[in-house]
Design a protein around this nucleic acid. Sequence first.
DNA 1: CAGCAATCTGGAAACGTTACCAGAATCGAT
DNA 2: ATCGATTCTGGTAACGTTTCCAGATTGCTG
Lengths: 295, 295
Amino acid sequence: MRARVIEAAERLGYEPDFVAQSLRSGSTMTVALLARDISNPLFAEIARGAESASRDAGYSIIVVNSDGSAEIEADHVRKLRRRRVDGYLASLVDETATATLTELERSGALIVLLDRESPQLQAAAVLSDHYHGMRAAVDHLVALGVADRVGLVTGGLQTRPTKERIRGLRDGMAAAGLEMDTRLTYIDDWSEAGAVAATERLLALDNPPTTIVAGGTQSTLGAIRALADVSPDQRPAFIACDDVPLLDQVPLPLGVVSRDATLIGQTAAELLLEMLQGEPPRVVTLQTTFRPRTV
Amino acid sequence: MRARVIEAAERLGYEPDFVAQSLRSGSTMTVALLARDISNPLFAEIARGAESASRDAGYSIIVVNSDGSAEIEADHVRKLRRRRVDGYLASLVDETATATLTELERSGALIVLLDRESPQLQAAAVLSDHYHGMRAAVDHLVALGVADRVGLVTGGLQTRPTKERIRGLRDGMAAAGLEMDTRLTYIDDWSEAGAVAATERLLALDNPPTTIVAGGTQSTLGAIRALADVSPDQRPAFIACDDVPLLDQVPLPLGVVSRDATLIGQTAAELLLEMLQGEPPRVVTLQTTFRPRTV
DNA sequence: CAGCAATCTGGAAACGTTACCAGAATCGAT
DNA sequence: ATCGATTCTGGTAACGTTTCCAGATTGCTG
């Protein structure tokens, strides 16, 4: 009997309808990736890793750009909730923005935070160990004797990576008996143009920094653009956080605190799949590695 | 009455269920982006552009990696068909692979091809004018006197961009009375490692090329990696097709044939939205621009 | 105020599944 | 052969909408 039914289904080209299945079962086999900007290489690779990892389990990935706006983000979550998304991989614009957090909670979906922490939310998380990567970078700077005045160009303070990087920087400098000069810290809007401007302001100081640290992809691109205009003998050392294609080919005295973005996406997807099978949320911390280089 | 209902809905926090709406209406308000690798900056930006453009119309974007495999791609389409996606933005692995084409046709969904052509498929398309960008590049090479021996490192021949670039290259050289040496053409697998190997083989020839052209992001990254090991006075000229972050900061005598990837994604989404409103499929060709540079 | 058109309102069917249940059919054991 | 236990089978309800229709109500005109 079973065989006869299967044969008939085959013959008629029957394929179960996903929408109807979803309506009945309540699960849409869909995961949303919330990011500031998917075209950012970091998020693009996370998306890649997450897609590959969830593919076999039958889950599809919806990507969403928040453009750095917490309102747009909350709006997206509202729409996604109506879509009955099963889970979120969420790189929130602002860990403290209650709008998004509330919408997420109301959705009832499972959540994996990407490099974010929220006591309010019952969620799994994939964190990167920015602290130790940055400590390694500072040790290197200290050894080179350029850690006395460190300028920082980075995106928003509302997120964990920035906080952790600053903590690593401060602690590393303190360990060498140095103090961080917060006047050398520029928080930009995660935009390349903002980073160019911030870097130029740092370089124009009477007493410019001996090292510039850039936090995040856009900041790195902007800082490099600004640094390229400085003559080689006056250039500060440069540390980038997060890798960018071709970074190794740029002739600047730079080092990189990098991490495996594909692995982040993959791990996040795995954590979500675990939760979808009923296991409790876990928090995984992935390492960052400091790759020094002197041109 | 109407007002009373709305008030009650408000009070109870009623939100229409998307899945049920989809089941009833047949439209899922979902678009799938088929790409070889979304983490490739080109596709990442296309995804960005497409998402932004479809957001306001209420459409969500599902991204899918085919990993360069036509079978995986066809498999994805099969699954997406069951999901009843309304449309596809398709950067097919292989224009001639019938498996995917058949699955797409069977799906009944609307299709916008991304830089692909298929007589079999009734579809809209966003094409890039690789031909004229490449012609401009060749003219530049001719003027510099390095167009006599042009090596080509590029991904597969099964897609339009490669064919068009070669056509532009051949025609441009012919216009200058030069003939293309096909022994200098290496078709790789769109992978960076493959491009490194291909470039190294070109450089190791007794009579190495005076210019190397790289087609596509991965080929460009690989070629640059290989070229970086060559001493500056022996380096061939270099032309990259498609931009990569930081390309401008790499100290190679390179030029770029670039295009606006975000605009491609945006245009593709607009074409799809048009079709979803009942208009016939259109084909739009966007320009490429040659940006020369000599270090 | 009757008569007709126009609007309102509530109910039923359908979209394509899955879960559940009752009754039929099968099986093994006494 | 009979009884209870097990598997099979077909049918029905439910998921949350939208569409459609019939009947009720309202408004307007003569």
